[in-house]
Design a protein around this nucleic acid. Sequence first.
DNA 1: ATTGCCGGGTG
DNA 2: CACCCGGCAAT
Length: 412
Amino acid sequence: MTFPAYQQEDVKTDISQKLPDPQFLLFATKEGDLKTAETKKTSRVHEYEKENTRSICLLEQKRKVVSSNIDVPPARKSSEELDMDKVTAAMVLTSLSTSPLVRSPPVRPNESLNGSWKEGGFVPSSTSSSGYWSWNAPSDQSNPSTPSPPLSADSFRAFRTPSQPDDGIDEAETSNLLFDEPIPRKRKNSMKVMFKCLWKNCGKVLSTAAGIQKHIRTIHLGRVGESDYSDGEEDFYYTEIRLNTDSVADGLSSLSPVSSSLASPPSFPTQDAIRPETPCAKTETKLMTPLSRSAPTNLYLVHTDHAYQATPPVNIPGSTKFTPNGSSFSISWQSPPVTFTGIPVSPTHNRPAGSGEQKQAHTVLSSPPRVAFGLRKPRGEGKKCRKVYGMENRDMWCTACRWKKACQRFID
DNA sequence: ATTGCCGGGTG
DNA sequence: CACCCGGCAAT
């Protein structure tokens, strides 16, 4: 591929026009006296600036893009000047990053692997006549039509405001939080992935997925004999968390032995602490599949159980069979609704704008009175006589069903 | 529209 | 009691 002369010229002029003050300042600094140079702008400095700016930037451009067609002057500069090249390039980036139109992303050397969406199609492109860094045309990216949301210009602005480009916060860290990066990127070797059991009142944390799966299988799902067999059900009940090794001990102590005040279930990604790390593929898929797949009755009921937990307006049915922790769920739907209000927090209790736990408790307790007083037992989700036997076999129904009462044969 | 079942009725 | 059903709410 050859580059027509006009294109090179284009690059030249464009760059020299756009190159902003940093270049000047840079060279001015080199001249020794920044202020003097800046104000006086002696012709020497000016010339120096112009010439070097052009050649250096051209050099950068050429090095990156073209190889043989454009005669890159093989004459190497002095090491000092080479350094200047780098600095200059950095300056260009800096200046461009603060431009209102295009913001250069944080440079993350480690992420060249798997050109994932995170890079959002951002590649240095000097083939464009402008010679700027630019967002590549979508055509060579996986996402054809729209820039992938996680790294849209907006989200960029969100974590890096023009007025305050950098206030000392680690950018990688920030973007991690904001973008929920699923990629196990070892930024620091102190990061460690742990797995936390989401079962209510458990919160056990293990270091291996297998471990947590086995834990859930045996402890919560009660599949003792088949401890090596996994149908994926366990995945539903644990989540991945990332911890700083430095704070792992802390994390473990705070996570594992059940924040006892948590009267609420582990209901998926509720826990505030883990929230940012969870939305990875695992959670997403696990949230979807188990509910949609046809499952053995056992699993089905377990899910149902969780469904109750996840839904605030509910007095929990007294299912002893599937209650992971029997005692904490001793409320029976047969007992008068009043017992529910007997919980030592008044429905009107003030909101201290406090922890997630308090918020959760509040959510449950302050839900509409109608529900809180449990006038109606949440309808069972299991199959009932009517469904099972059909209207035509009404005589096979349990009496309760025949009487249009709560089914006694297929209790939830 | 279908289903689960509460509340209330009848004998 | 046993039995039935109107009607509401959830699906």
